[in-house]
Design a protein around this nucleic acid. Sequence first.
RNA 1: GGGCGCGUAGCUCAGUCGGCUAGAGCGGUUGCCUUACAAGCAAUAGGUCAGGGGUUCGAGUCCCUUCGCGCCCACCA
Length: 859
Amino acid sequence: MTNRSHSFRMPDKPSLDGIEAKWVDVWDESGVYHFDRTAGREDVFSIDTPPPTVSGSLHIGHVFSYTHTDTVARFQRMNGKAVFYPMGWDDNGLPTERRVQNYYGVRCDPSIPYDPDFQPPAKPDPKRQIPISRRNFIELCDILTAEDEKVFESIWRRLGLSVDWRHTYATIDDTSRAAAQRAFLRNLARGEAYMAEAPTLWDVTFRTAVAQAELEDRERPSAYHKVAFHKADGSPVHIETTRPELLPACVALVAHPDDERYQDLFGSTVTTPVFGVEVPVKAHRLADPEKGSGIAMICTFGDTTDVTWWRELQLETRPIIGWDGRIMADAPQGLREGAAREAYDKLVGATVHTARERMVGMLGESGDLVGEPTPITHPVKFYEKGDKPLEVVTTRQWYIRNGGRDEDLRDELLERGRELVWHPDHMRQRYENWVEGLNSDWLISRQRFFGVPFPVWYPLDGDGNPRYDEPLVPAEDQLPVDPSSQAPDGYTEDQRGLPGGFTGDPDVMDTWATSSLSPQIASGWERDQDLFERVFPMDFRPQGQDIIRTWLFSTVVRAHLENGSLPWSTTGISGWILDPDRKKMSKSKGNVVTPIAMLEKYSSDAVRYWAANGRLGTDTALDEGQMKVGRRLSIKILNASKFVMSVAGEGAASDPAQVTEPLDRAMLAALAEVVEEAGTAFANFDHTRALERTERFFWDFCDDYLELVKARAYDTESPEGASARSALLIALGALHRLFAPFLPFVTEEVWSWWQDGSVHGQAWPSAAEYRTVAADGDPAVLAVTAEVLRDVRRAKSEAKLSMRAEVERVRVAGDRVEAVRSAVGDLSAAGRAAAIDLEPVEGKELTVEVTLPEPEEQQ
RNA sequence: GGGCGCGUAGCUCAGUCGGCUAGAGCGGUUGCCUUACAAGCAAUAGGUCAGGGGUUCGAGUCCCUUCGCGCCCACCA
């Protein structure tokens, strides 16, 4: 706080028009949001910004949560921290592939050679996608994502995010690929990553394996089919199944060991209907006597429970569903001859759906289908991005240990979850539920094209078979590598695919395998050690509640394994955006609102105001009404600032020593409280409370204090006038800074009318300083005086008079009248009251009696 | 089946350690061209704090319970 005199440069007609474009450019040139690389770790506040998926469209939900983070970033910056606020772009993986396919009308066919002259069709035909090579496809991905990133960046800038745009990354760029490959190689070296051939949940549309974290249940119609198996004597054993088409894949029946009905069957065999394959009857605790007939058929594989039974009971394997989701041409063992083969051949090549119909037909003919199928609906596992039910297919995949098969690691990760500070705290439950429910390690390989390739090759033996147990890996300084176009050390490219040569691992990593390293990637891990030491582990991870099990958990796993620490100390989980009908907004529901129109209609600050009113973890409805309020607040800040400056007059001082009047001191005492509360709230990631307190104070400041003191403030002769002017300017300087995290554009605008430099580079106001200026100031003086003023206004309003109407007399009585005594002059001026009587009465509530002139005297 | 959150004015929401007569904004109503702001200002009506029970001098707040809404996890014949 300085006691210098000010000059004012405010316009006659303040306006919000065009302030976004104006200040975005100024900020970019001045570098006010640049990270100070000389700051030590304790002076840094670092943010692990969620990299938005650039292939999707930005929607209002993004604006919501990114605004929350930005208000905290701006507070921390004003609070003296060097804020490390990078931005990432998630352009990895399936969403980009799909967008490129649709945008250009192409599809990737890895068997096609690269065409350096390829040009995408001018008019893409979505029904006839042109097959192109993997390299051509990836080039198109790069082109399109670069364009998408530009669009995103311009929206973020317009929203006023105080990102340091020199620090950006993309999840598919060289840095990220190198980091993902380096982390993987280290996981591999430490035994945390491993390859296994095992039954895997498989999406038949995308033809890729998917991880537990990417599953979701969907209710689907189905039907119980009651099917007869046969004992040796020909008598039937009835099972119920929703998947009769898997009958040729049946390897056993299973019932609960205590189930009375099946005791004599355990240890014996039965034959499958139609195919006549002999399968054992086994006992297992997971079989539920209540379900169906209490005895189930086990197939390889209908679901994950089948996998458990198959593994624990050491059953045979009869796979019948191929990677494309159709019944494979090769009949499984036991069905390769005779009638069984004949029946199986009727299913070959069919989709699951068709195979089911045919199987039901065959069961009907053989008389083994009992009664009609009973329709039910039941939950079925889907890949979250897919639209066909998942199958279970045996494939070779890479995994990273995540505690799914290891109690000790699981406990360590649960402990990390408890170490982490959560806002709101109850979100930790989601993490614990998830970690406690893990049933497998993290499957990170995907059979896709656009992604980070595994940095691994395999030697080929004399017959040309890969030696999976002897993977060849690059040195870290060679990263990133593409094993499909580069040869490993010791080999040359012409040995690719030949016996005695080598082959590259064909898969790419799950997108989370890269984004789980976002703190390391952004912090310069193994790339810029100086930066890394200043910002890692990071301070804050903002993110959505829907990706706790994926992004948050996997990031904790990677940092725990690689760095032996949490990746950040605090996480803030934002809520959903609901449309005005309180439905969750999502692309699939088609109720997504894009932010541009809102920003244009209400201004960026107004949209930010709406967002800032949503607390972390709380679902918030899209409410244009709040944006209108935000716009009104912004305009009010323009007008009130202009007014204070014009009242103060050119050359006015904001001199603490001049603040002598009790009413002015009362206002500053109240301000000190607000500054204190807002700062504390912000430090605790409670931006909503900080805004609410600031806003409350500001409206009271405008409605009451400003009205009370404006007459006095015009008086340039007396010390009382100087007291008001200094207090007004001191409060204005505080208000501009208190609002700056929320309304960066309008606060910068008004700041520029009377101060040098950016408001966003200023120190957060100090409660202690205002307390010192307020000295013996008692907030009650302002509060009670305002209360009396309100009574005067009410009297005029009820008499349907203008607020300008003269008042003959105001009589104030009660136990708090002394608080008003020092402000009688201001009260008289603001209320246009000729006389004000004060009557102290101990123990009596304040009463205000307003005497208005007779109506005829008003003429 | 296990767990989490929510339910306060017509609407959207605050309400911090249990403590004045339960608050705000929007919307409604009644007024006001008032020397910053009519995209403004002033005033005003509107409440069984989901229901029931309990603890307490005192409960929107703590405990039990019922109902409703939303979500997470697990199950998946």
